[in-house]
Every structure is written in C-alpha cells, then in structure tokens.
Design a protein around this nucleic acid. Structure first.
Length: 137
DNA sequence: GCCAACGTTGGC
DNA sequence: GCCAACGTTGGC
C-alpha cells in the first residue's frame, strides 16, 4: 500500500467537509497539474493519505483513504484531467504543522517541505509512520 | 498583501 | 524545441 498527501485550502474544501461526506467520499477534482495527476493515476483502492490544510492552519489534520480510482474529472471537459475519490478515515489526535515537519530531521526530504506547490504528493513509509506518531496515532 | 517559486502557454 | 511572459500557489 502506498501513502500520499492531499492539499486543500480549508476555505475551499476543509477536513470537516470531507468528514461530513462520510463513506461516500469526495472526488478530488480541480487538479490541473501533471505531476499531481500522475500521482492520482498511480493510486490503488485502499491507499491512505494525509489531508493537509494549506494557507490556513498549514497542518496535517487527518487521514483519508482512496475509495475510487482515477477517473475523468467531472469539473472539466478537458480529457487530460483525472481525479480519484477519497474518504475520511480518522482525524489526527494532534495536527502536525508544516513547522513541525520542517523541524524534524526525519522529515527533511518530505515533498511537503521541499516542493510546497505540489498539491498531491507521495509520502514514504517512514515519513508516514513518523507523522502518525507525531499526530498521536 | 507581498512575493518567490514554479508550472504552463504560446510565439518564434 | 526554446524561452519569455504570464498565472497560480502558498508561505510568510
């Protein structure tokens, strides 16, 4: 199983909204970046991801699961763009901030730390474990 | 609100 | 295929 990180501005789509969708999940529409799209195409059902609030909070707040494979993004007619569907699994007991990640030697290679602008990112097994621990899970 | 970093577009 | 211009993201 692979691990990922999904970024969202809570103004546009927040963790609370994601939780409210329940097991139906939510299509992760609106990604218009090839790298991010390619990550979504590589996702398998059951893959887990962190849910990160950008701009406001700048923290990882929860864990999501891929419950729908990459499919055409319904918000555009442009056939280049796909998206997966994700559902909330559980919140972190303690949010892990970007600052926390930058301060932790074990997380210095995280994409979140090094490539702020990529909205869908891979997370390594070790990084996943570290953040879960920091998050009180 | 600013601005650096980065990705995309489009003219050549 | 290059690269300048432009738009967007996101941390500060």
């Amino acid at each position: 199983m692979a691990y990922w990180l999904f970024k969202s501005e809570p103004d546009a789509w927040s963790w609370d909204q994601q939780v409210a969708r329940g097991d139906k999940g939510e299509e992760w529409t609106g990604v218009r970046n090839y790298q991010a799209r390619n990550h979504m195409r590589a996702m398998q059902l059951g893959d887990r991801g962190f849910f990160y609030h950008s701009n406001i909070g700048k923290e990882i707040v929860g864990i999501v699961e891929v419950c729908g494979l990459s499919a055409p993004d319904s918000t555009t007619d442009d056939p280049r763009w796909d998206c997966v569907t994700i559902k909330a699994v559980m919140p972190l007991a303690r949010p892990v901030t970007l600052e926390d990640c930058k301060a932790d030697e074990r997380l210095k290679d995280m994409v979140l730390v090094n490539n702020a602008r990529l909205s869908v990112q891979p997370v390594s097994d070790a990084e996943w474990q570290t953040i879960c621990k920091l998050g009180g899970i």
